[in-house]
Amino acid sequence: MKRALIVVEGPHDVELVGTMLRSLVLAPKPKRIRFKRDLEPFWHPLVPTEFPIDDDMAARVPVPVFFGTTTHSVAVLNVGGDSRLLPALEESLAMLAGGADMVGIVMDADDRQPSERWSALVDSSAAEDLEIGLPRVAGRIDTGPPRVGGFILPDGASEGTLEDLMLDAASIVYPELLDHARAYTDNALELAKAQRGPLSGKAWKQEWKLFVDKPAGRRKALVASMGAVLRPGKAIQNSIQDNRWFRDPEALKHPRIAAVRVWLADLLELPLPAAG
């Protein structure tokens, strides 16, 4: 049994990895493990036993999502932001007896070049007490043991986020819905600009700033508006999990989406997925 620990920035990234896992050459397809009694004891140390965390009843309980198949057991941990990637990795490795066979980090490039983002992470890892070293180049896998690698979304080479990958997928899987969503958000942008007068500065900022001022905000709104139709009343991660964004064979062939798959297959020492 190969055991892989992958730390990611947020809940959407968890579902990206989970969906990608299902597209790899694994038989049977990995199942999400819901009950602790079904989880192999190796991972038990990563399951919290306390509530509330640090006395905060509103804080999310930081438990990984576990996927299992006959050959691989994968824990994907949402760390709640890029500043927590290395600390959460250090904590998790400290708790695992003997360590994991594979360790992965998935993060957004945001508005920086991936190489720059990764270098900054590697440099800051020197200050942490990690049990492992990070490869100097993102996208590559150090064979260790353990196997260690990082992937910078959207594609390891460009600035951007997971939402860029979702828009790539949408252009293939939901092209008409994407057009409607663009029209919707473009209209909303005009509405936002028109609101500058009627609303006070503070009120306007509270309602519109993230959407208007940040390109990433508009991409998130675009994805969210499609997700709201595909999975009404549910969060985007549910849509990623249930809908065809990263399940459609044609979408998986998109070069940027394929890059994630190839990296994940390499990390897990699996054959490269066939096209589609």
Binding site: P48, D54, P62, E90, E91, M95, G98, D129
Partner: peptide
């Protein structure tokens, strides 16, 4: 760690394991 080895944790890490992760 597994009965034969001892893992060393500095105080700050132990604090995070207990209060940040509830482990």
């Amino acid at each position: 760690d597994g009965g034969r080895l001892a893992k060393r944790h500095r105080g700050e890490l132990l604090h995070r394991l207990r209060f940040g992760r509830g482990l």
